[in-house]
């Protein structure tokens, strides 16, 4: 590979992405970080206030509530989503009539705009007008506060997130499975490995990178959940079901505390990046061991 790696060739390959990404992504993030140290309302003058916005967060019960909710959603979603989407990818690889059509349908939820996903699920989860409670009513199950109550909302949001992401994760797994060399599997079969052993000792280890991709994407996506909560409960009752991004949106645009909002954004960014890195580090250590 050294032959094609002259310095200018590397530069040429990297330059377009670097330029676009730096101008339209990194610069804005830097701008937001800078404003997180001011009392800006979004326009007009901004005064430098040091780390006041950050220390105020420590004192803000709604911020901690939204962090807790985000963590609950993160754990619940990952535990359910990774195994189920991988299993689904394996299942839909089987020789089934119209498997291609099934894959398209399973991917369906991933195509729907998050804001509509939220709206759709209002009509399913709402304690009064939702489909779920209407179906449970004849069974004698009293109205359950799936959303809007004191405890269930984060779990319901996780459920909706799993639903909307499963096709997405399944598709990446599916693409990854296509790249697993078949001769390795054949060799395992000749050695008399059962399907489970093939899966456990050949396929999954060879897809380590795919698992890493899916997990990192899901972690970062959980830290970005906004529209689901916004539509399902609007963050209520009284910010109890807020996630980090929905609370940031509230502070930035509803309360027009741009500086404080950007401080929350920086926290989201740092937490998302750290969680992903921690996962990658753990995965790498395991693969070395």
């Amino acid at each position: 590979m050294v032959w094609v790696s002259s310095r200018w060739k590397i530069a040429l390959m990297l330059a377009p992405a670097l330029a676009l990404f730096t101008a339209f992504f990194v610069y804005p993030v830097g701008y937001a970080i800078a404003y997180s140290f001011t009392n800006s309302a979004g326009f007009g003058g901004a005064k430098f206030v040091g780390i006041d916005n950050y220390t105020a967060l420590l004192d803000d019960p709604f911020f901690w509530q939204s962090l807790r909710n985000t963590v609950v959603i993160l754990v619940v979603s990952l535990v359910i989503l990774i195994p189920s989407s991988f299993a689904l990818a394996l299942l839909l690889r089987r020789r089934i009539a119209f498997a291609g059509g099934l894959r398209a349908l399973v991917f369906g939820p991933a195509i729907i705009a998050p804001i509509l996903v939220g709206l759709m699920w209002v009509f399913i989860l709402d304690p009064k007008i939702g489909l779920l409670n209407r179906l449970l009513e004849p069974l004698g199950v009293g109205p359950i506060q799936w959303i809007g109550g004191n405890s269930l909302t984060p779990y319901s949001v996780s459920l909706v997130f799993v639903w909307s992401s499963i096709g997405f994760a399944m598709t990446i797994f599916y693409a990854g499975l296509q790249l697993v060399p078949n001769d390795v599997i054949e060799a395992a079969k000749l050695d008399g490995a059962t399907s489970w052993q093939q899966l456990r000792h050949v396929t999954i280890p060879m897809m380590r990178e795919t698992f890493a991709i899916v997990t990192v994407l899901l972690i970062t996506n959980v830290f970005k959940i906004f529209e689901l909560v916004y539509m399902l409960t609007g963050g209520g009752p009284v910010h109890r079901s807020e996630t980090l991004v929905s609370y940031m949106y509230f502070v930035t645009f509803t309360n027009q505390r741009y500086g404080s909002g950007m401080a929350i954004a920086v926290v989201i960014f740092v937490l998302g990046a750290l969680t992903s890195l921690a996962y990658l580090a753990a995965a790498r250590r395991r693969s070395l061991a």
Partner: peptide, 17 residues
């Protein structure tokens, strides 16, 4: 540098862009 972008909520980018 590129991958860190995954962790950024897009609302941060609106004003500057």
């Amino acid at each position: 540098y590129f991958l860190a972008g995954l962790a950024v909520p897009v609302y941060v980018l609106l004003f500057p862009i």
